[in-house]
Design a binder for these strands. Sequence first.
DNA 1: CTGTATCCTAAAGGATACTG
DNA 2: CAGTATCCTTTAGGATACAG
Lengths: 124, 124
Amino acid sequence: MDLTGNDAPGCGTGRRRRRPLSVTATVLGKKWHPLIVSVLLEAGALGFNELKERVQGISDKVLSESLDDLEERDLVDRTVIDDKPVRVEYSLTEWGEQLELVVTAMDEWGKRYLDAHGTDPAAD
Amino acid sequence: MDLTGNDAPGCGTGRRRRRPLSVTATVLGKKWHPLIVSVLLEAGALGFNELKERVQGISDKVLSESLDDLEERDLVDRTVIDDKPVRVEYSLTEWGEQLELVVTAMDEWGKRYLDAHGTDPAAD
DNA sequence: CTGTATCCTAAAGGATACTG
DNA sequence: CAGTATCCTTTAGGATACAG
């Protein structure tokens, strides 16, 4: 897994510098990442299974991998709470929280787009 | 290719309605789409090869497929200009242009993130 | 100039079962 | 509760060659 963003599209052979846009796209381009970030923005810290319920449809394995990736990229904090049984809390770092602007913009565009293109029941 | 957004993550088995966020994520989650939209935002209408030059590193095939997808989703207009040789111009529809907010937010987050995480030359 | 047609591979994602 | 371990399928993406 590349964390530098060097594998981001548009970086060519290195002659051109990494594009900020592509760095963000690499992060939010993973299938479940935007949703996970969005859920954490709304709900604050959550345990693994709480998160899994809210991110409907994701499997254990994929959620686990996604969280690992988000943690490596410094968007998510993982805190082990040493109860019995062990609890783990996932929450956003400052970087994760600063994605709120992006996520909000995405959500609003999506709303408008759905209103215009998705209203047709035949589309369902 | 699903255009309805029903295959978007978080839509589960259909009990929950499609999430606007996931619709946007499905569009901008394709590897080259954000960059293509961004280039068209900056440059306005462009021909196939002009586009290809600016979206550094993309292959003919992938650019072609991406443009087909963006056209189907009503983000991009394709205009055939009947010169000899034939020219084709790609430009953003109103929906494409309305992504500017999203793209800008992504770009700015990316800048800040790179400043904080990518300054280290060892990261390259 | 603007693409298609093939072919190929790496990687992401999903189903299921099992563990500390 | 919070994950790993396998195994498997799909597909996005890339290289290359050719075509209208």
